[in-house]
């Protein structure tokens, strides 16, 4: 596999919190443009993996390379820069800033990245179908709508990797489908890779590849174990 085609490469990646081992010797390679689903019950180490990939946390063992950068060698400020330039994050609790409107929430991401461009931010919200609710605060939006604002915010800076932590955890079936549909569409247009954490089999089916984790170990990888059922 050529290096330019790889978005994530981890070698013997491990993370320990004191005596607790959250993640052990993970070797993972994800190709550019792939949609990787990580499954497992809570405490299986999938959130830890996501934090390590997003440069929010540092490994205690091994190395993690994302978009050609070795994250373990970066300083605090370089990590912040990596996050704003390469990573888009979507959370389960659609973490939006409560006092800013939908539009301003997207603009905040622009501000953190470089400069604020209102027209572009509006365009991004229109793309996720939120063009009619630009001036509403998060409290006035439904769960699905909030998650769509989050998606607009996550993709506004054209990240190489989109990390989604249970993005549909709080949504009903219809909204879930809409969100996933949106992600698929955007991936096709923008070409970013997705790592999505979930414990829902149906959601996992939307991805290209699924790994199953337990106790900080990958117990099943359908690239190794064959195509999913």
């Amino acid at each position: 596999m050529e290096e330019t085609q790889v978005i994530i490469r981890t070698e013997q990646l491990g993370r320990r919190y004191g005596a607790i081992t959250a993640l052990t010797s993970l070797d993972l390679v994800v190709e550019k443009g792939d949609w990787l689903t990580v499954m497992g019950h809570s405490g299986s180490g999938k959130s830890t993996l996501l934090n390590l990939l997003g440069g929010l946390d540092r490994p205690t063992e091994g190395t993690v390379q994302v978009a050609g950068q070795d994250l373990s060698g970066l300083s605090e400020n370089e990590l912040a820069r990596f996050r704003r330039e390469q990573i888009g994050i979507i959370f389960q609790q659609h973490h939006l800033i409560p006092y800013l409107t939908a539009l301003e929430n997207v603009m905040m991401a622009q501000y953190i990245h470089s400069v604020v461009d209102e027209v572009e931010a509006r365009g991004a919200l229109e793309r996720v179908g939120m063009g009619h609710r630009l001036r509403n605060r998060p409290g006035e939006l439904s769960g699905g709508e909030q998650q769509r604002v989050c998606i607009a915010r996550a993709i506004i800076n054209s990240p190489a990797l989109l990390l989604a932590d249970e993005p549909t955890g709080n949504l009903d079936g219809g909204a879930t489908r809409m969100v996933l549909e949106l992600l698929r569409e955007l991936r096709a247009e923008e070409g970013f890779s997705i790592v999505l954490v979930t414990h829902n089999q149906e959601v996992a089916a939307w991805g290209d590849r699924t790994i199953q984790m337990d106790d900080g170990l990958v117990i099943r990888d359908d690239l190794v174990g064959g195509t999913p059922a």
Partner: peptide, 14 residues
């Protein structure tokens, strides 16, 4: 073409 790239350039110039 890409908005983020555009903004990066402007931010660098600023």
């Amino acid at each position: 073409r890409q908005g983020a790239r555009r903004r990066s350039l402007i931010a660098a110039a600023l």
